[in-house]
């Protein structure tokens, strides 16, 4: 950033003039082009728009809050570091989620290898996932909700990495198959196949919660 690295809160009025730069591009791409030109408020705007979706996506992938935040920070750092090379050839969110997905895949791979070395058993694995806290007031509803949440987490966690990423992007980010294909670097038909198989597996595992 030309005027320092601290990201100031986003003020929409600050970014409007930049929209003329690329009227045909999506807002994110236009903001990113302004970031490339040294505009710190545009970076803050991108952060504000995508921080929670990225953190939540990475959290659902790795199922660990501290790691999710660490990886999400790395995502935005990489976005910032790559600003000079940025070309709006693809949708910004495709690029963003590709970075997030690759980081999550790498972490999951490292974690799997670490766990296999340490020979952790299933009990410890289940213990490591207890990071989410439900804030509902009723103890009974908390228990019911937590049982369901654990089932959902375990069902998602048991999916192969690519199926997991595809279904999370389809469900929570409402991405089209073609965009998911670009994020994962595979064909549209491969993504459909991943998603169909993932939902099939989830239907079997979550049938009792209907």
């Amino acid at each position: 950033m030309a005027d320092g690295v601290s990201v100031q809160p986003w003020r929409p009025d600050r970014v409007r003039p930049g929209m003329a730069v690329a009227a045909t591009l999506d807002l994110d791409a236009a903001l990113m082009l302004r970031v490339r030109d040294g505009c710190s408020s545009s970076y803050a705007a991108l952060l504000e728009r995508h921080r929670n979706p990225v953190i939540h996506y990475v959290f659902r992938m790795v199922q660990n809050q501290a790691i999710a935040e660490e990886l999400a920070q790395e995502v935005f750092l990489r976005v910032y570091r790559s600003r000079q090379k940025y070309e709006p050839s693809a949708k910004f969110t495709t690029w963003l989620f590709r970075i997030a997905t690759n980081l999550a895949f790498n972490w999951l791979r490292d974690e799997r290898s670490r766990k296999s070395q340490e020979s952790l058993n299933d009990g410890l694995t289940a213990g490591a996932t207890i990071n989410l806290k439900d804030r509902r007031p009723s103890v009974e509803s908390v228990l019911v909700h937590n049982v369901k949440l654990n089932a959902v987490r375990e069902a998602i966690g048991s999916l192969p990495e690519k199926q997991r990423a595809a279904v999370l992007m389809h469900k929570y980010e409402e991405m089209e198959y073609s965009q998911i294909a670009k994020v994962l670097g595979c064909s549209d038909s491969a993504v459909k196949s991943l998603i169909f198989r993932a939902y099939e597996s989830l239907r079997e595992k979550l049938a009792q919660y209907g």
Binding site: R51, H56, F59, A151, V152, R153, Y172, R203, Y209
Partner: peptide, 18 residues
């Protein structure tokens, strides 16, 4: 069955302090 999956996934809203 698919709607059950969808509703179950809807319930999973991470409470992450950002």
């Amino acid at each position: 069955a698919q709607q059950t999956v969808w509703q179950s996934l809807d319930a999973w809203e991470p409470a992450i302090e950002t």
